[in-house]
Design a binder for these strands. Structure first.
Length: 835
RNA sequence: GUGGGAGUGCCGGAGUGGUCAAACGGGACAGACUCAAAAUCUGUUGCUUAGUGCUUCCUAGGUUCAAAUCCUAGCUCCCACACCA
């Protein structure tokens, strides 16, 4: 075999693609548009590992597939280059974040280009460039004008290690999503986007998009819409609303619990109880630092205040408790120990009375003997005029009753909080806001955008380096021209990623964030590809942002990503492959040895793109062999084909096309490989051209090389159907047409025939093996088939002779009968006679 | 705890009611080629047998003429959410 210089082939075609601008696209096309996008990566200064290679290849295969299928495919790449890691690196290594980001981008780009992906590199963006972040500021101002961006003081998540606040979504079970540090609550003035206003639309529009069900469920849960009733309890003569989803249990309330973190808790605490409450707060603080809050016991103390239940004027104690969340509902709950497990535990612990108001149908509950709360449905007792109602039916009636008396109202509650976008960090988009002692908060006028991030700042200072930059902070008020100061917080990176896919549509526009015609042409993204870890972060924020932009008139669609595909994670040694864990296999580890096409083919072959995979080198060789086989066949092409070959090839077209469409790449590759196997001794040029095109999304370089070698395509008959005139393909397989299945050439009978013969050969092998074991030698094979199957087996003798080297005859069973032999033949199972 | 997913032959991994002893790849074994090896090609890879029969797809039951595939219970693993009133 000739040594193949894969490196040279890769380089050659990558250069050719670039020179010919193969993958650069514009809106001026008669073809239908298709937008394929991978989540843009955070550039870190390292090599790509197999996890990256896999992700990018998944998208590239799809983009190439769609392109060959006659779509005008936008497939861009860019970089999420703002963010904390660059800043940390800057502090640690003394490199400026900008330098760090730009070096990293150069590196990662180099490696991405070596993958041979069909990106339109002319559109590349990086979020740290003023050309980009200027528009973050612009949109921020627009949202501010509409009241969708606002500033307020609120208890927020603070990460001590990152020295910044975090959005709710970024505090995963009380820990920072980046560094894992325990998050603490702080009361700070911060900027928010009003995502809560879109909560309903974010839920209902999920029906419009084709996303994995689990992502939709996660978003729904995160938004956490629940219908309920707000009931006003009076405490110390003041109205305190309480949210509940169980108004039917209102008569069973025996105490209230206010969250220990509630900002107004102290208003309820009596002088006498102050010490006790403070002790509770201390206990809770200690618990904060502990790993597991899950096993936490209910803890609380009496505040010294009493509340009046509005429905029956009962006087009930108010407790402060650790299990009530301050910022959900009203931060105060009405406790019904008989019918809520948490309330029950609390009541037992503090010996608070338990009052049953719902009885099961079959018996009566005894509050003295209950060992746990009764939570199912039943009929009401001890409930005044609602006695004997079914509790379900009473829910609405009780709410109406309260509403009529102005003691309560129907409400909807959401778990989702407004999106906190401020970060006390340097390396992000500066907020275009100014504080003036006279005029208050003043937005930077549009004409002054972008507010540039100053390069010279002191990274050694504590906290946000921006805050110590006088040139940046000190500014004149745009309104009164007086002394004022700039906002020194920057925007979290999820703002950048909320609209970057719009910028790709018109990434070089200096005057606008994007041209609306262009954006409305390309958007929405038809196929988005990325990890599931962004389910309630990026994927939620981007949906909100697009909805807001639609309301502001910038875009015409509701949802940014029509289809979403979650790729699986690559593991090694039981952990996610990542630089920080040190369990990486680099792109070059494989590509240096076998070429990048082998790496691509292997990754797409070895497991489904949506499945997590454990990395193993076993099998890389297999992928390499497939490519070599392809090359070998290319040296052995015939002018003509036969029916069986045409049948197999056309069947493969059908299977491969269907499989790629739904990301079942391994299946597609199997179908191709089966053809290679079947016709390893030679294939018609035409059929080989089909195979080449089908494998080209997986192995684009070698496919181009062989495509060129076998002398192009013009003669290929399937090109008659071509949607792309040959002159547009310019000789590139990457721009050629996807083969079209010729149904007429698919002949199921050939398939049956082949299988029948194969079964026969298998049987023969079996028999011969057994006979060999017995030491019997035979030299002739006679196959007796039932008369109407003669056609199926008629050519089998040649093949059998070839394999076994024995004279073989195919005969009708009638002849066996006439010669008096005791041979049986059944349909699909001819009689075999050896002598 | 709640919700979701998964458990297939030595390994990875197809397969969702019959055409399944179970695709495809890896590995292993045997043979061909070779002085030899690599590469390549051919075959074997649950047990059995003149092409048969038998036992298998986490475990135990069940539905069905028929189950890896459907139902029930249990075990194990993974992921997400986590006291949301």
């Amino acid at each position: 075999m000739v040594e193949i210089d894969f490196k040279a082939i890769e380089k050659k075609w990558q250069e050719k693609w670039e020179k010919a601008k193969c993958f650069e696209v514009s809106e001026n096309s008669k073809k239908k548009k298709y937008y394929v996008l991978e989540m843009y990566p955070y550039p870190s200064a390292s090599f790509l590992h197999m996890g990256h290679v896999r992700n990018y290849t998944i998208g590239d295969v799809y983009a190439r597939f769609k392109r060959m299928n006659g779509f005008n495919v936008l497939y861009p790449m860019g970089y999420d280059s703002f963010g904390l890691p660059a800043e940390t690196a800057a502090k640690k290594e003394g490199i400026h974040p900008k330098k760090y980001a730009e070096t990293s981008i150069k590196m990662i780009m180099k490696y991405q280009k070596a993958l041979g992906n069909s990106y339109d590199w002319s559109r590349v963006i990086a979020s740290h460039e003023p050309d980009y972040y200027k528009w973050n500021q612009y949109f921020f101002l627009k949202l501010y004008e509409k009241g969708l961006a606002y500033r307020k003081k609120a208890p927020v998540n603070w990460c001590e290690k990152c020295q910044s606040v975090l959005a709710n979504e970024e505090a995963e079970s009380g820990k920072c999503w980046r560094c894992g540090e325990e998050v603490v609550k702080k009361d700070l003035e911060q900027w928010f986007f009003k995502i809560t206003k879109y909560a309903d639309r974010l839920i209902s529009d999920l029906d419009k998009i084709e996303w994995p069900e689990r992502i939709k469920v996660m978003q729904k849960n995160w938004i956490g819409k629940s219908h309920g009733t707000e009931i006003d309890f009076s405490i110390n003569g003041e109205k305190w609303p309480v949210f509940t989803t169980r108004p039917d249990t209102i008569y069973g309330v025996t105490f209230l619990v206010i969250s220990a973190q509630h900002p107004r808790l102290m208003e309820l605490v009596s002088e006498k109880q102050k010490k006790e409450v403070e002790k509770l707060l201390d206990r809770i603080k200690k618990v904060k630092s502990q790993e597991e809050i899950e096993s936490l016991e209910k803890d609380g103390v009496f505040t010294g205040s009493y509340a009046i239940n509005p429905i029956n004027n009962e006087k009930i104690p108010v407790y402060a408790g650790n299990f009530v969340i301050a910022d959900y509902g009203c931060g105060v709950v009405m406790a019904v120990p008989a019918h809520d497990e948490r309330d029950f535990q609390f009541a037992k612990k503090y010996k608070i009375p338990i009052k049953v108001v719902i009885n099961p149908d079959s018996f009566d509950l005894n509050p003295e003997k209950m060992s746990r709360a009764y939570t199912p449905d039943g009929r009401l007792i001890n409930s005044g005029e609602f006695n004997n109602w079914s509790n379900r039916e009473a829910m609405d009636s009780i709410t109406e009753y309260l509403a009529k008396k102005k003691l309560g109202r129907k409400t909807i509650n959401y778990k989702i909080r407004d999106w906190l976008i401020s970060r006390q960090r340097y390396w992000g988009t500066p907020m275009p806001m100014i504080y003036c002692d006279k005029c208050g908060i003043v937005p930077v006028p549009e004409k002054d955008l972008p507010v540039l991030l100053p390069e010279k700042v002191d990274f050694k200072s504590v906290g946000n380096p921006l805050a110590s930059s006088k040139i940046f902070v000190e500014v004149k008020c745009p309104k009164c021209n007086g002394k004022a100061r700039r906002e020194t917080d920057t925007m979290g990176g999820f703002v950048d990623s909320s609209w970057y896919f719009l910028r790709y549509c018109d990434s070089r526009n200096k005057k606008k964030a994007f041209d609306e015609i262009k954006v409305n042409y390309w958007m929405p993204v038809d196929q988005y590809i990325g990890g599931a870890e962004h389910a309630v972060m990026h994927l939620m924020y981007a949906r909100f942002f697009i909805k807001a932009l639609k309301d502001l008139g910038y875009v015409k669609f509701d949802e940014p990503f029509t289809r979403l595909f979650n790729q699986g994670i690559v593991y090694k040694d039981g952990a996610k492959m990542s630089k920080s864990k040190g369990n990486v296999v680099f792109q070059t580890d494989i590509s240096d040895k076998y070429g990048i096409d082998t790496a691509r083919l292997f990754l797409m072959f070895v497991s489904s793109p949506d499945k997590q995979m454990e990395w193993s080198d076993d099998g890389v060789e297999g992928a390499f062999r497939i490519i070599n086989r392809l090359i070998r066949i290319s040296e052995n092409l015939t002018k003509t084909s036969d029916k069986l070959q045409d049948h197999k090839i056309n069947l493969a077209i059908k299977k491969v096309t269907e499989a790629i469409e739904i990301f079942e790449y391994p299946k597609a590759i199997i179908s191709i490989v089966e053809c290679l196997d079947k016709f390893s001794e030679g294939m018609s040029k035409e059929n080989f051209g089909i195979i080449l095109r089908m494998i080209s999304p997986f192995c684009p370089h070698i496919a181009e090389e062989l495509w060129e070698k076998i002398g192009k395509i013009a003669s290929l008959s399937s090109d008659k159907n071509s949607k792309i005139p040959n002159k547009f393909s310019r000789g590139f397989i990457s721009l050629s047409d996807w083969p079209v299945c010729d149904e007429k050439k698919i002949d199921e009978n050939l398939e049956k025939q082949e299988q029948a013969v194969e079964k026969l050969i298998l049987d023969l092998r079996n028999i011969l093996k057994i006979l060999e074991g017995k030491g019997e030698k035979k030299s002739q094979i006679k196959i007796f088939v039932i008369p109407n199957e003669l056609e199926i087996y008629k050519n089998a003798n040649k093949k059998i002779e070839q394999i076994f080297g024995m004279k073989t005859e195919i005969l009708s069973i009638k002849e066996a009968i006439s010669t008096g032999k005791k041979i049986q033949a059944k349909p699909g199972k001819p009689g075999i006679f050896l002598e």
